[in-house]
Design a protein around this nucleic acid. Structure first.
Lengths: 203, 203, 203, 203
DNA sequence: TATGAATGAGTCTTCATTCAT
DNA sequence: AATGAATGAAGACTCATTCAT
């Protein structure tokens, strides 16, 4: 363990640190944590192996800082999307937009998404981080909905269930096209189900 | 890579192979694939390291055969449960039983479940295997429901959505107790949601 | 840390372990612990680097087992010397023989002696081991002297002081020939001093 | 190897160099040469790592200059002690004072003493330096004794033997309390032995 | 079949030293 | 004269896989 891990202050150093994080995270997202080594990370970041350990405690630390920087982009980009209308009257449209957005986003970071999910399931701290972030995002979405006139009652729970439904649907659509599953139909069933969850708000 | 992997025919040999699979799978489930080595597996199985490579192409092969043998126990034990009534008139009870069963089962194989989920997300072939099995199980459940009087229309899709809802709920309950989430409430919401999915069958 | 360090049972394996200990100890004695690496040890022992860690927990472990095997040869060979007479009447001769023996022995394992002394001074466990062994040897010498008619009173302490005097003298003679020091004279002074320590036994 | 090591002439530069030497020596004394790195030294000295190599050829050089500055304090402080009377008539008292002083001094710089001893035994140049200094100190002590009326004959050799006896005794007392060794007794035996060495001077 | 000893490439990490600024 | 970022070789240790018996 290097006791002299430094927090870079000069602009160039900060950029270098970011480069390492990006390179490390990209590689891990592409090949998995165990199939990525520090030499590869250093090479991709355009630095020497030694410098890596002046910015990071260990290989794991690179992953973790990467998670902090980039996992929102992969898992929770919806709330940043300005085109989605969260108004009650646009509910049906909103759900459809969220699904569309989710799927297109998943498709871009397909492998990354899966590799990170793998880590969430195998590493305690990654899991902790992810679930905390997930809770924050559910809360944020809840707040947005309240602002748009949704009833507060059970809202957190309903939002959570809704996110799960969307998540499962999209995952299904993207990854494991079962031949005998009708995805158009499934999408409509999911949307109906979500609407039912919010039936009190939708008159 | 050993080209001479043999399929054991004698009884003792078959038992030995099974021992290795069991030992390997147990260890991987407990500590993860990358944190389990072949020496440990051999030791736990009570065989020499060398013999392992007469039964298996490589370490990965042990995992895979383990998956084939034991993953159902971890992921899809519900259908084997004789106490669950799948009749239409017991629908509410059925859902509750499934949730109960799912949770108690998860709790037992907590770590195993997570480690395998990790592999599903990081390994193409494990994923393929799992999703195929998942589809088979959904089909089987669908058939059971049909036998018990459920409408066939969209049934496969509805079953899939239902399983996802239960899965998310249980995962939530078991792993990441968010302080501000009311799980009793959530459970009832999920059950209502599922009932809504099958409203045509439930008059 | 390798949990699977094995204690070799087959003859060839035991020989191999001994070879590693010998190679490691020799290299450490010649170049010092920090200037010896595991690859060198393996090479000198004629084995691969990997095998080293099947017999030893770590590099330090090699050193320590070497100490247990060989340090007596370097530090306390006197008692094994059959030619030395420990009888009271031969006291003067005995001292001279011990000095001779010590010096010739030191000269052979000159560097080894110093490298181990270095470790004794810098490593807690090596020190502990050495001082325990030293005490055992002083006790053994005491017992021999008692058997040869020496008074038991204060004998342990007198033996210890005697050993220190011989040690210093020999070290002086071998390592740092100070130009202005007369070693012949010093030797005689030391012998006289020792005789004085045992004057009650020597009439 | 840096060919441009400069000898600092300005006061501030000299102070900086001294700071590095002190920091380096302190750290090495505490943790050993191999467990001290240049970054730690620079940090403790309050300078940058780069500057170190403007004042010193390499890490070893820092150690060596430290030795030159500070080793006397650790190994030969006795001669500087004004309270010790070296007169013939106070001989018994002198020996006792020296032993006391030695022990209390050892106790303070316990670890430092051992770490430097380790280097003396493992490094040729450190050994050379130390033994030269030791000889100078013996000479100085000899001169003091002559001034106080001691016979010159064999004095250098007798002083050396005496120092060795004290050294061994103190080391014994401080480091490895053997349960079965009577230290009070040993001390008296050593004092008697030393007196015997100087019996011609003590009538 | 079976053993377990043996291999050696591969991994993370450290650190003395140099270099751009 | 000074900084501290950067280098990269080197080291301890691991482990899937093979081999001699």
């Amino acid at each position: 363990m290097n006791e002299l891990v430094r927090e870079p202050k000069q602009k160039r150093a900060i950029e270098k640190k970011e480069k390492i994080i990006k390179a490390g995270f990209d590689l891990i997202c592409e090949n998995g944590y165990y199939n990525t080594n520090t030499a590869q990370i250093a090479k991709k970041a355009g630095v020497s192996t030694g410098i890596v350990y002046q910015y990071f405690k260990d290989k794991y630390d690179i992953l973790f800082e990467g998670l902090e920087r980039y996992s929102d982009e992969i898992f929770f980009p919806i709330l940043k999307n300005k085109e989605i209308s969260f108004e009650k009257k646009d509910f049906d449209k909103m759900i459809r937009q969220m699904i569309e957005y989710y799927i297109s986003n998943h498709k871009i970071s397909n492998i990354a998404h899966e590799e990170i999910m793998a880590m969430i399931h195998s590493d305690k701290y990654v899991a902790e981080f992810y679930y905390k972030r997930e809770a924050e995002m559910s809360s944020a979405l809840k707040d947005i909905l309240i602002k748009n006139g949704f009833t507060e009652e059970n809202l957190y729970e309903r939002v959570h269930i809704m996110m799960g439904l969307i998540d499962n649907l999209c995952h299904e659509v993207i990854y494991h096209k079962h031949d005998d599953m009708n995805y158009e139909l499934m999408r409509e069933l999911v949307i109906d189900t979500i609407k039912n969850l919010f039936k009190n708000d939708l008159v």
